[in-house]
């Protein structure tokens, strides 16, 4: 049965370089999937293909809720359903925190100003930043900025949330506040694909952990099995390296 996100035979080339080598992946509605693997293994490339921030070869197929992720008018539909949170936040520096959150609902969904503002304030409440609505992003700490970025993605009420190492650019003392917000989100039934180096988070929150290496999915298992009894040697080596320090 095809998943809510269905990835079939996904190939991605950067010029001569074969970055994704035939990925097949089905993700169920409401599932929380953590993607781990060494640097350069293709984790970012994989999730950026899901909303087609990266182009991929024509013989590959990705569907989200049955809609093919192809260039053209469908793409806006898919992107409105798929939120993304980046490692470097990518907040809009010329807009206040509230305006950052309001922009997409206003422009894409044509929500009225008052309604969008009220929604932004509810979302800020939810990520613990109600007091910062009128500030500009540059006045916030990294952890606060990333929580605003999550609120901004949530404003489109997406069915899917993609995270690309959301805590890797943060000072250690701010990682927890962002992971807490993500942990709460995982309870809400939204489908999440999280690229992360936070093994603790993957173990506690994921329904499934995927290990990538060299542009391929090497292993895919529930966290319990993944961390205590990995089948593949490459997975064991990776876990050894990241858990042993």
């Amino acid at each position: 049965m095809p998943g809510y996100i269905s990835i079939r035979n996904l190939h991605k080339h950067y010029g001569e370089f074969h970055a994704l080598r035939g990925i097949d992946l089905e993700i169920a509605r409401g599932e929380v999937v953590c993607v781990v693997g060494p640097s350069g293994s293709g984790k970012s490339t994989l999730i950026r293909c899901i909303n087609r921030l990266e182009d991929f070869s024509a013989d590959s197929a990705i569907r989200v809720d049955g809609v093919p992720v192809l260039p053209g008018s469908n793409l806006a539909r898919v992107r409105a359903e798929v939120g993304m949170v980046f490692q470097s936040f990518n907040l809009f520096p010329h807009l206040t925190v509230r305006e950052n959150i309001m922009l997409a609902p206003r422009r894409v969904r044509r929500t009225g100003r008052a309604e969008a503002a009220a929604q932004a304030d509810r979302l800020l409440e939810r990520v613990g930043l109600a007091a910062h609505a009128g500030k500009y992003p540059s006045a916030l700490s990294g952890g606060q900025q990333q929580r605003v970025a999550i609120a901004r993605a949530l404003a489109m009420e997406p069915q899917v949330l993609l995270f690309d190492e959301p805590t890797s650019a943060l000072d250690p003392e701010m990682v927890g506040e962002v992971l807490d917000v993500m942990r709460d989100l995982a309870q809400t039934g939204v489908t999440m694909v999280v690229v992360t180096h936070e093994m603790g988070f993957a173990r506690q929150v994921a329904d499934r952990v995927i290990f990538m290496d060299g542009g391929e999915v090497i292993e895919s298992a529930p966290p319990e099995a993944f961390f205590s009894a990995p089948r593949e040697a490459r997975t064991r080596n990776f876990l050894h390296a990241v858990l042993d320090h």
Binding site: R79, M84, S88, N90, A104, V108, M156
Partner: peptide, 16 residues
């Protein structure tokens, strides 16, 4: 580039 990507990921069109 991240500004273009964030806008695209939110579903904003090129003009917006």
């Amino acid at each position: 580039r991240g500004q273009f990507e964030a806008a695209a990921a939110l579903g904003l069109g090129h003009r917006q």
